[in-house]
Amino acid sequence: MELSFLDGVLFERFEYYLLGILFFCFLIQLYFSLFVHLRLARLRIDPLSENARKPLSVVICARNEAENLKQYLPLVLEQDYPDFEVVVVNDRSWDETEDLLKEFSKQYKHLKIVTVLEGERFIAGKKFAATMGIKAAKNEWLVFTDADCFPASSKWLYGMQQPEQEGIEILLGYSPYLKKRGLLNALIRFETFFTAVNYLSFAIKGMPYMGVGRNMAYKKSLFFKNKGFAAHMHIPSGDDDLFVNAHAHSGNTGIRIHQDAQVWSEPNTSFGAYLRQKKRHFGAGKLYKPKHKFILSAQIIIQFLFYVTLIVLMCFKSTLYLALGVLALSIVIRCFIYPRILNRLNYGDLKWWFPVLDMLLFIFLVFNGILSIFVKKVKWK
């Protein structure tokens, strides 16, 4: 009898502990939603200025990208901007990239080709190719994108040109993925959405920590002043986010999310390719500044604890309805914020699947984190 009573007391305490963890996670979740991400939902998007202030250079690294270059490079070369060049780095390609670029150079005089040969300086990877492109660029303001990307409009460079604000050295753009059929595509776009919401919102808050190389810009002098990618040349990825993480701060960083200043990208079509891409990103994240690693890790841990305690509490009759109430309140509050941002970032079709995709994304992030512990080798292309 005494043991039964003691077991009951301990069981009640266990439930109270779990409820405490659930409410704590709920409050932290609300902090990120209401005090960080809501900034992006409320951000005023000014029209693009059609006054070209300074010349700029677009830098594209390509490795065996003949098909993508044939389709998308003309959209970059034909931008409605009065003074720009396009520097394409042919990084050890063995397909038709070299011949294609030579043909394009006959038609487009502002195309500059840089060729990286196999074994050159015994360095391989996108960072070396990007460094060669940056060195070849003649202008101070550099705009970056990838070979499998295309601008949302002919006004893209007006949006990504050097801002009028004094001191801005880095400009973080946005690059959504194209819509395809299937659950994998929805998951890829939703994960990209939340990554963008995070880095753009924290940049607005004054704590920029990453950008995406599909659409970003910075000063050439900033690159060389900080010795380029020297601090993380041994990491296959990070030519974009690690550079931003190391050198961006509240006073030198701006963002651009105007519809015409976005760059669309081709998504992965296989789960394996997507996992390899996320593995590269995960490896780069290990070199983020400690405060950024803490915040990003806390977000994942809080989500993990929220769902785990929620599931456990839903197994008990005494806490089932309370747990369901917290889940419903969490969904309702976030549904007032994220669907609006989904529309703003060209993912409006996903807003109807927001609660489901949110849970699937969490499962994927945990799976990818575990997988990254055991799979060490990654490479670019």
Results as ranks from 00 to 15, higher is better:
4 S>V: 11
9 V>M: 14
11 F>G: 07
13 R>V: 13
15 E>K: 15
17 Y>L: 15
18 L>R: 15
19 L>N: 06
19 L>Y: 04
20 G>Q: 08
20 G>W: 03
23 F>S: 10
24 F>A: 13
27 L>R: 13
30 L>M: 11
30 L>F: 10
33 S>I: 09
35 F>A: 15
36 V>T: 14
37 H>G: 09
38 L>N: 14
41 A>E: 12
43 L>Q: 12
46 D>G: 06
47 P>V: 13
50 E>I: 09
50 E>H: 10
53 R>M: 05
54 K>E: 15
54 K>M: 07
57 S>M: 04
59 V>R: 04
62 A>R: 00
62 A>Q: 00
63 R>Y: 03
64 N>V: 04
70 K>G: 06
71 Q>R: 14
72 Y>R: 12
73 L>C: 07
81 Y>F: 12
86 V>A: 14
90 N>H: 11
91 D>R: 01
93 S>N: 01
93 S>K: 00
100 L>E: 07
101 L>Q: 05
103 E>V: 10
105 S>E: 11
107 Q>M: 10
112 K>A: 03
117 L>R: 10
118 E>I: 06
122 F>E: 13
129 A>M: 02
130 A>V: 06
135 K>I: 12
147 A>K: 02
148 D>G: 11
151 P>E: 08
154 S>F: 01
155 K>W: 11
157 L>I: 08
161 Q>W: 01
161 Q>K: 05
165 Q>V: 06
170 I>F: 06
171 L>T: 03
171 L>A: 03
174 Y>Q: 08
174 Y>L: 12
175 S>N: 10
179 K>F: 11
180 K>G: 00
182 G>W: 01
183 L>N: 06
183 L>C: 03
185 N>E: 05
189 R>P: 01
190 F>C: 01
191 E>H: 10
191 E>R: 12
196 A>R: 06
196 A>M: 08
199 Y>A: 10
201 S>V: 05
203 A>P: 07
203 A>F: 07
206 G>V: 04
213 G>K: 14
213 G>A: 14
217 A>N: 06
224 F>S: 07
231 A>W: 07
237 S>R: 04
239 D>E: 15
240 D>M: 00
240 D>T: 00
245 N>Y: 02
248 A>G: 07
257 I>P: 00
258 H>L: 06
259 Q>W: 09
260 D>K: 10
261 A>S: 15
264 W>V: 04
267 P>M: 04
267 P>L: 01
269 T>I: 10
270 S>P: 07
274 Y>L: 00
274 Y>M: 04
278 K>P: 00
283 G>Q: 15
289 K>G: 05
291 K>M: 08
293 K>M: 04
295 I>H: 05
297 S>Q: 13
297 S>V: 05
298 A>K: 09
299 Q>T: 11
301 I>S: 09
303 Q>L: 13
307 Y>M: 11
307 Y>Q: 13
314 M>I: 01
315 C>I: 14
316 F>K: 02
316 F>S: 05
316 F>N: 03
320 L>D: 10
325 G>V: 02
325 G>M: 08
330 S>D: 12
332 V>H: 13
333 I>D: 07
333 I>G: 07
334 R>Q: 15
338 Y>I: 04
339 P>G: 07
339 P>H: 11
339 P>A: 09
342 L>G: 00
343 N>I: 10
344 R>H: 05
345 L>A: 03
348 G>Q: 02
359 M>G: 07
360 L>Q: 07
366 V>Y: 01
368 N>Q: 05
371 L>C: 03
372 S>Q: 03
375 V>N: 09
376 K>L: 02
377 K>Y: 10
